[in-house]
Design a protein around this nucleic acid. Structure first.
Lengths: 229, 229
DNA sequence: ATTAAATTTTAGACAAATCTAAAAATTTGT
DNA sequence: ACAAATTTTTAGATTTGTCTAAAATTTAAT
């Protein structure tokens, strides 16, 4: 109960910082750098320092000056709560309101800050307890439980490997629209036929159709490989 | 186009003031008093004056010091946009998430500030373009069109009048829960059988069942009378 | 029609969240 | 190891939205 104290007292800004620190913290196990936060949030390092101090006061982050920052257990739980909300809203927008997957992020950024446990639990139910958002990212459960799906970047698998496209690494509107234009979507069966020595581009077969994609594209697509078939 | 300039630049606080001024302005045709705003918003008159000046700068309200305040055409349109969002979200919560009508207000107060035209238009469609919210209040259309339904307070109709319960005047959780407990809901057929001289309480027949309600209750229930039957 | 009461506005202060510019600490290059 | 470059923090200012206390204006009362 003690750890729930400030759940409903956090400002939007505090929540955004926590979320950003969570995302940056995932990459390495290192402490997150002030500059990295500032860059991602398009703000100044001095603003970040100020906010970190406040979050530290509230026991949401571990902080020693000049040594970077990391989430406490409470901070982590908070981050997962926000991400759960963000991703459930994304599913709602796509499934119920017919948004396309490149339109959901901006609105979900707003909706994720709505404070109501009942709301989010009922939304979860309405959507039939989805496990992944429209970009293939896992949705934490009520308690912050988070199962990272077994998946690999298409750029990392060897020739002749086949699998189902289950996610994107870059979920910018630009990339998602590119995928739409080229008929690439989650659920497609993809098989790597050939990898070009020269530039790393790949010849793939996707739902039966042959096409060539650059290494950059492949390194932003996740597949669940199934060599067992 | 000019009048849309600040639609997405309004702060939550500004929106709440505009909404409050709208609601207070409905009652009389008078200008709205600073104190009335302060009381309803549970803030201080000095804060209200500060905000009114800002809203006046943005051409959302007409303001002359010491003379009260009223919405401009732009302010009115803005208010209707917020109310539209509030009431659509209320319908969503009741229809799709099984909230009861006494639980929706608080959450809708948050959701009404989400900024996305597409979101609200799609929500409207999902809900099949409802004309009234769960409390019987009309939902403005996309352009702010607003048809006040033909209805009367139950306390105002003469004996032997029958009609359908179409709305509540007080939509506080307390009153709504009272109605639930006593089996009174929108859609019920109500007929006034007798009015008590002494305290103005009413003997009514509601969906066939007889009961007695106080004058206060009756003066918070709207019916659409149909003497024509 | 003055005085008293109520309402409204100003003045000045404060907290949150941000910024710029300058100082401090850390990391890097040779 | 030590100077240079980079990163991070501090100091001080700004904006939004609020407050208290005091002054100005309007309204009500006798």
């Amino acid at each position: 109960m003690y750890f729930c104290v400030n759940k409903y007292l956090m400002t939007r800004s505090e929540e955004n910082y926590i979320k950003t620190i969570f995302h940056l913290g995932r990459k390495g196990t290192q402490e997150v750098a002030t500059n990295a936060i500032a860059e991602l949030m398009e703000t100044k390092p001095s603003s970040v320092t100020d906010m970190i101090k406040r979050l530290s006061e509230k026991d949401l982050v571990n902080y020693k000056r000049y040594q970077g920052v990391s989430l406490t257990a409470l901070g982590n739980k908070t981050a997962l709560g926000i991400i759960r909300k963000h991703r459930l809203w994304e599913v709602f927008l796509v499934e119920k309101l017919d948004f396309s997957w490149d339109e959901v992020h901006e609105v979900a950024e707003q909706l994720e800050h709505i404070k109501s446990d009942k709301l989010i639990d009922c939304l979860d139910k309405l959507l039939a307890f989805p496990k992944f958002d429209p970009h293939g990212d896992p949705i934490p459960d009520k308690n912050g439980g988070f199962k990272e799906r077994d998946r690999e970047l298409l750029s990392e698998v060897p020739i002749n490997t086949g699998g189902v496209c289950v996610g994107v690494k870059d979920s910018s509107a630009t990339f998602l629209k590119f995928l739409d234009k080229n008929g690439i979507a989650l659920g497609n069966r993809i098989k790597v036929m050939e990898i070009e020595e020269f530039d790393g581009s790949l010849n793939i077969e996707i739902d039966g159709r042959k096409m060539q994609i650059s290494h950059v594209i492949a390194s932003n697509l996740y597949i669940k490989a199934n060599d067992e078939i």
